[in-house]
Design a protein around this nucleic acid. Structure first.
Length: 567
RNA sequence: CGGGGUGUAGCGCAGCCUGGUAGCGCGCCAGUUUUGGGUACUGGUUGUCGGAGGUUCAAAUCCUCUCACCCCGACCA
């Protein structure tokens, strides 16, 4: 490809609406443009990268026995009503009517469609297992799209669905997808980690996320420094700690804490560590108020709480609800005395706390010297907090280490959640109708592009892994007015292209500096500079974008040398 | 949805407080110059000042309404 023909409008300045590096560089490098919030145009460079990612995905999915299909983006409400998700899915599901008034939605995922397809035609155990996948544009009307491609509303996703005769077979499908995912992300050149995860809205019981390691990632994870355990902090179970042996005979005392609401503020004000605090959170679970206690330095895990309460919706209480429950403004809730709540749940770490600090259920007042069980009773203790750096591993007791990541893949064991509600069954050898056992498997194709950049960039631009770079090598003729330079560049361009190397020739009549800047920004893995001086010596200069090392290569060896780098 | 903020040339911004003929940098076009890390200079091009309504002799500027976008919180590939 010639730069003069390529539609890749590069920008010198960062776009003002971009915050994260991948967003900045994709816009500056002429890869994407925004059409509306969370909706982007993909220009030629981005399109090439997306095709490369998609092809890696296709290749490995096929290898794992999945077959590619292409399902409708527009889906009728009927099947969603049938699965129960028409009511369950919130405003994130973009709904609309056709001219006849029939209701449709833009597919955020395709369980309903695929189950409908499979149940029509698959009747016998002989047809299973079956695994179908597609690479398609999804639409989720996110509350707040952000960070460019990292969280768009419209995005390209690979989704696969497996159908099996029973749980054991379904788990084999799951494992084979898991293995395929590891190959896919590895081939894409990503540094990633598979972690145990919550199943969320899609439902099911077994789940792993594939997380690309990046400080800018939205997700927090922990992994064990001693064993293989790794999990999303929302998911990570924590071992029940042994309660402390200490006792505190002193009485509970009320202290004046004017305007000190947060743990931080009160902790500083009273000169007591956050670990000696009992944080009392008032939550609304399906309309009922509950008090939840966690240690001051810990964070409530709403997902764990939701499961324990068996509630559909759990939110932190509104100010008015807090007042109703505690008779005090927000910031002074505590478990001692009477709380108007349905139950008081506490995290395991609260058991046996002595000489603790809590709110007094009174404006500007806290209590000190509080002992759990002597001064208040909880309804039940559970594992209710987020795991974090330094916690104990639930598997081996080793230390957990925290890290951040970008979720690029997610595999779920679904069981019969959809096959039962939508009546997707096969006949077994005995002639009985049995619901199929399903799994579903997603990969964010456009998100991989962004995640790869978050993980591979420097101050000058993108540093693509070879496998997903839009081109392999950039050729920069540095003096367009020197015929020998242009001729050498053209010749190398021809020869490399013939050898199967994907080349971007910067044939613009620009100064060398501009070409270098744009080449760094666009981020192709290799760069060949052809300059008049070096050409006198019969060499070209080959730069590795990653690491920046420059080697002089005899012009005659250039093709073979570069081919060797790509392979 | 709650809280905060921004809309002025293709991009990044100033002007708004204190109303009076719309500016700067980059880009783009023509040319001179330069020629291995965004060269310098000359000339030129580019605007429903997000939209609607109002106040006023006069509105980018003041008022009201509205739309879009961004950031912080709850969702997910």
């Amino acid at each position: 490809m010639r730069m003069t023909r390529l539609h890749a409008p590069t920008l010198k300045e960062d776009p003002k609406d971009a915050e994260v590096v991948s967003h900045k560089y994709l816009v500056r490098g002429g890869y994407i443009r925004k059409l509306a919030a969370g909706i982007y145009d993909f220009l030629p460079l981005a399109t090439r990268t997306i095709h490369k990612i998609a092809n890696v995905v296709r290749d490995e999915m096929s290898r794992a026995g999945a077959q590619e299909v292409f399902l409708p983006a527009v889906q009728p409400s009927e099947i969603w009503v049938e699965s129960g998700r028409w009511a369950y899915y919130g405003p994130e599901l973009l709904r609309f009517k056709d001219r006849k008034g029939a209701e449709f939605c833009l597919g955020p995922t395709h369980e309903e469609v695929i189950v409908d397809l499979v149940r029509r035609d698959v009747r016998s155990w002989r047809a299973l297992p079956l695994n179908l996948f597609q690479i398609q544009t999804k639409f989720r009307d996110e509350i707040r799209p952000r960070a460019g491609l990292m969280r768009g509303r419209e995005f390209i996703m690979k989704d696969a669905y497996s159908f099996d005769v029973d749980e054991a077979a379904a788990l084999r499908s799951y494992d084979s997808m898991y293995a395929a995912y590891e190959r896919i992300f590895k081939r894409c050149g990503l540094d990633f980690r598979a972690v145990e995860a919550d199943t969320g809205a899609i439902g099911g019981s077994r789940s792993h996320e594939f997380q690309v390691l990046a400080e800018s990632g939205e997700d927090a994870m922990v992994s064990c420094t001693a064993c293989q355990y790794a999990a999303n902090v929302e998911q990570a179970e924590l071992p029940v700690p042994t309660p402390g042996e200490g006792t505190f005979a002193g009485a509970v005392e009320k202290v004046h804490t004017p305007n000190q609401r947060t743990i931080d503020e009160v902790s500083r004000f009273l000169s007591r560590p956050a670990t000696s605090f009992i944080k009392t959170l008032i939550v609304n679970a399906d309309g009922q108020l509950h008090a939840v206690l966690v240690r001051g330095d810990h964070e409530l895990n709403e997902i764990k709480l939701k499961k324990k309460l068996g509630a559909a919706v759990v939110t932190l209480a509104e100010e008015a609800e807090v007042r109703a429950a505690t008779q005090a403004p927000v910031g002074f809730a505590g478990p001692v005395g009477s709380l108007k709540v349905a139950s008081i749940l506490a995290d395991n770490a609260v058991r046996g706390m002595v000489d603790a600090v809590t709110g007094a259920n009174e404006a500007d007042q806290h209590l000190v010297g509080v002992n759990e069980s002597r001064d208040f009773q909880v309804t039940a203790f559970h594992d209710l907090r987020m795991a974090g750096d330094g916690d104990a591993c639930p598997r081996c007791g080793g230390r957990l280490k925290g890290f951040r990541g970008i979720e690029v893949g997610h595999v779920f064991y679904l069981g019969t959640k959809y096959s039962k509600s939508m009546n997707c069954a096969y006949q077994n050898e005995a002639g009985d109708d049995v619901p199929m056992v399903m799994g579903c498997y997603g990969i964010g194709v456009t998100r991989i592009m962004a995640a790869a950049i978050e993980q591979n960039h420097d101050k000058d631009g993108i540093v693509w892994p070879v496998a997903i770079a839009p081109f392999h090598v950039a050729i920069l003729p540095l003096q367009m007015n020197v015929p020998e330079v242009v001729a050498a560049a053209e010749k190398l361009y021809e020869e490399l292209s013939d050898a199967g190397v994907q080349v971007l020739l910067d044939d613009r009549d620009e100064r060398a500096g501009s070409k270098f800047k744009d080449a760094d920004l666009i981020g192709l893995p290799f760069r060949v500079a052809i300059g008049a001086r070096a050409l006198q010596e019969g060499v070209i200069e080959l730069k590795h974008r990653r690491g920046g090392e420059v080697v002089k290569v005899p012009l005659a060896d250039a093709v073979a040398h570069i081919r060797g780098l790509i392979a």
